[in-house]
Design a protein around this nucleic acid. Structure first.
Lengths: 332, 332
DNA sequence: CTGTTAGCGCCTTCAC
DNA sequence: GTGAAGGCGCTAACAG
């Protein structure tokens, strides 16, 4: 920066001002400075700027998986909401484990983000502590935790699946099964299963028709294998709710292969309104949760919180419930 | 850090050493320091560390889209290769545009990454200049650029599709079409189309059966619409090559809906070996390119380069060609 | 509108 | 194995 300043015949401070959009520098001086920047191929060192100004101008967002359109859409929504703020979004993928989430939270906090967005309302004790004492706004998404850390943008996965099962019941299905992942590490998956169990109980339907298959995220292939297992164990099942559209699609394809008519012989429903469920044949009944909206709401809320924090104030914790919708399509 | 030092009865410098795994500190002292860190909830400020040590311990990776298993697998491969190095991977999504890539490159460089991985071999002039003068190792992936910036890990998209068309020709197909995106912004898509055009010419097949549909990345739905258009314009087409498995899947589903037998009436091939192509019915013929391998190779190469750079040396530019494989399945 | 001064929090370097 | 001094490159705060 000193080199640029010398070349432009000003002080380093003026260069610094010229490089911020809001810096009060005369147009002529700025012109000269930008020319010098160009000629020298100078790139501002934001590390030093962060240290000096105590503004890192980035926020951290942790999602379970990059390659899941639900979560990558949420990331895109956040990015869109933060576009005008000058805040860069740094993404991390937790691979659906709380341990990796904890490690990522600590790694992110070492870089002093101005805000953090996490997926889900369950965290390791240490992760919770880190987030609470980080001194920056925190948003939990894709869930409605009973004891939130601070802000929340989400919905109840259990309620959503409950509503789906009730709808299937309304359509005449009586022996409804559930296909999900093995472990409880995927807390959203666990909540969805819980919603299924609760609904089956409430409706007085035969319980226990649950196939757990593989570590989350359960793949298309695993959905297919789980479907085969479901039919082998409970041949009377007339509808299956899958933990996500991906496993639902796998289940549907397995039915095609085995000649089980869908929805004639068995109905299938998924979760998440993934493109594959909208595009396949027959189209899969699912629960739509508007991931981009979740991201935009989270991004907007975070930006407001950060502005308050920069002004030395603190935004009161907010909880924003986003709607889900049941999309009945051709598989039920 | 001073607070921690005071509490542990040592100097800040000793705390700094205790917090690096390789720091030469007596076990007892380290114990005391870690205890103080725990009690105070102290989190190291890596920003200051970066400024002081001139090591940011992160690398930037730019991929066209998060929600594309090819690229997110590459990111996972890089992450795996970098795991032991202590380098954090910061991801950015370019949305398949060179303009956003340029902006992201500059934003990343302001944070002083120790290395950069980009997708593809085409960049804006400014992006090229920035990368060349950044003074850190650069790797281009998923392509074999004729004038690489430095290192390369990739394959020729044109050659791969060429080989696919030749294989279809070998199987007896003679009126082969191509479905891809509209613009030339997706350079890998453009290369694939070029490979198709070259192959059709070389084999003396009827040319011009190309449907361009939508901005890249072309979706499943768009693949379906493109297929309908293809059949309307060239009803004699006996095989279609799609720019990716996603559009191929959409095309396949459209055929199901319209009652066109696959592969009886028309054969379909995709690109990328996505899960949906492996799992659907019938399974889609495709080109497999091992995205995780690309990522691991890029990560390993980057790590080696960074070690050299840290030692004040420079690794000679390397080009690593990764193989592709044609997987013939049920749609051809 | 521009310049000067004094750090930001850590790590390098050197001394003991 | 531990400590003291100094500086990384920038920006806040104040002065003019």
């Amino acid at each position: 920066m000193t080199d640029v300043a010398r070349r432009a015949g000003v002080s380093a401070m003026t260069v610094s001002r010229a490089l911020k959009s809001d810096g009060a520098v005369s147009p002529k001086t700025r012109q000269r400075i930008l020319k010098a920047v160009e000629e020298l191929g100078y790139v501002l060192d934001q590390t030093a700027g962060t240290l000096s100004s105590k503004r890192s101008s980035f926020v951290a967002a942790l999602i379970p998986s990059l390659n899941n359109s639900n979560f990558s859409d949420t990331a895109r929504g956040m990015e869109r909401a933060l576009e005008a703020s000058g805040l860069q979004l740094l993404l991390g993928a937790t691979d659906y484990t709380l341990e990796k989430e904890e490690r990522l939270i600590e790694a992110m906090l070492r870089r002093r983000p101005e805000g953090v967005v996490v997926t889900g309302g369950r965290h390791t004790p240490k992760a919770r502590r880190l987030l609470q004492s980080a001194g920056v706004p925190v948003i939990e998404t894709w869930d409605l935790p009973t004891g939130p850390i601070e802000h929340v943008v989400g919905f109840s996965n259990a309620d959503a699946v409950h509503a789906l099962v009730v709808r299937l019941h309304l359509r005449g299905y009586r022996r409804i099964g559930f296909i999900g992942g093995t472990s409880m590490r995927d807390t959203r998956g666990a909540d969805r299963r819980f919603g299924y169990v609760r609904a089956v109980e409430a409706l007085g339907l035969p319980p226990g028709r649950i196939v757990s298959f593989g570590q989350p995220p359960i793949s298309m292939e695993q959905g297919g294998e789980a479907m085969a297992q479901m039919m082998a164990e409970w041949p009377d099942v007339d509808a299956v709710v899958c933990v996500s559209d991906l496993s639902a699609f796998g289940a549907l394809m397995e039915c095609h292969r085995r000649g089980w008519a869908v929805p004639g012989r068995i109905a299938i429903a998924g979760f998440g309104d993934f493109e594959v469920a909208r595009c396949c044949h027959p189209r899969i009944t699912t629960v739509s949760v508007e991931p981009v909206e979740i991201g935009m709401a989270a991004g907007t809320l975070l930006w407001r919180s950060i502005e308050e924090a920069r002004a030395g104030r603190r935004l009161a914790p907010e909880s924003r419930v986003v709607p889900y919708r049941i999309l009945e399509r051709e598989t039920t």
